[in-house]
Amino acid sequence: MIEPHKLLGVRDLSVRFATEAGPVLAVDRVSFDIARGETLALVGESGSGKSTAALSLMGLLGAAGGATLSGRIDLRLKNGSTHDINRLSARELRRVRGNEMAMIFQDPMSSLNPVYTIESQICEAIILHQKTAWPAARRRALELLHSLGIPNPEKCMTSFPHQLSGGMRQRVMIAVALSCEPRLLIADEPTTALDVTIQAQIIELLKRVQSWTGMAILFITHNLGLVAELGGRVIVMYAGRVVEQGKVAEVFSHPCMPYTQALLRSLPRLRRARAPRQRLQAIPGNVPSAVDRPAGCAFHPRCGFAAKGMCDTRLPALEDCGGGHLAACLRWRDIASGKAA
C-alpha cells in the first residue's frame, strides 16, 4: 500500500535475466516513489538498469522473455484503487498500459508503424481504452496534435510516419501517449535521437503538457543537462542500484556519492567557478559488466575515495545525508567533511 498523495510506489524491485553468460541482475532492489504531478528523473549510464526498470513498470519485460521480476510496483489507478503491477494478469495489465500510464521511447523514427496513418495510430489507443467511436477519437486526436504545436494537424493526421521529421514524430508519439490522459508518463530517453534544438522544444513541450494535465513524468536519461532543465527529483543509478536520490537542485549542488560527483565533473560548464583552465574529468574505467559485478560497492574500482577492506567488501545502503537527500556511500561523511583522501 502507498500513501494517499503517491501515484506509484516501487519497493525492492529486482529484475534478473537468464543469459548465455549466466544470470544477470539488471535491477537490484530499487525502491522509489512518484507523487502525483511530480517529475522524477532516472539518470545513469547505459547498462545501469534504468531502461529495464522503466519497462518493468509498464509490465513490458515479460513480453521480451527471460526476465524474472521481484518486489512490488504499486500503482494508484484513476478509480482510486491500488494494484501491484507485478501481480496483474495479462488482461488487467493491458487495461493499465496506455490508459493509466503511457510510455514514449527513445527512437521516434521507428516508434511509429510505417504502414498506418498518424490518425489511426493515435485513435487506436483512444478507441481501445475509452470505448469511443471513430469520430470522437478523431476529434480528440486532432485536438491533441493541435495543442502539441503541430502545424496543420489535419494534414498530419492523414500522413504516414515517413512523411514527418524526427521532431514531429516524437510529438506524434507524445500525442499517442497522452491520448488516454494517463497519470504517469514514462519517457525513455525521448530526446536522445533528436537534434539539440528539437530536444529543447520537446522538453519544453513535456513541461507544458505536465502543467495542463497534472500528470507525473518519469524521465529516463543519461543527460544530466536535461535533468537540470526538468527540475523535480532525481535518482542516480549505477550497476542496477540506486546510488543517490533527492531534489535536483540539492543533488546537483551537493552530490554526496562519488559517482554523482564524478558525473557532474565530467559535464562542461561555462563560467566555471574554479580554475578557469581546468580540464573536464572523465571517470576512469568502464561500467562493470552486469554478469560480473564487483563485490561491495559496485563503483569502488573506479572511485578515488575507495578504502581497502571497506568499500570492496561491504555493500552500502542508502543513507539520509540531510533533508531527504539519500546516498549509498560508506564514506560520504568523510568525503563531505574533506577527511577522505
Partner: peptide
C-alpha cells in the same frame, strides 16, 4: 524487434492485435 511493436504493446493492445495488426502487414 522493431520499436513500434513495443509501442503497440505499451498502448495496451493484446498480443493478437500486436501480431496481426502491427507485425503482419510489415
Amino acid at each position: 524487434q522493431r520499436m513500434f511493436i513495443q509501442v503497440a504493446r505499451a498502448k495496451g493492445l493484446s498480443e493478437w492485435m500486436v501480431a496481426f495488426k502491427h507485425a503482419l502487414p510489415n
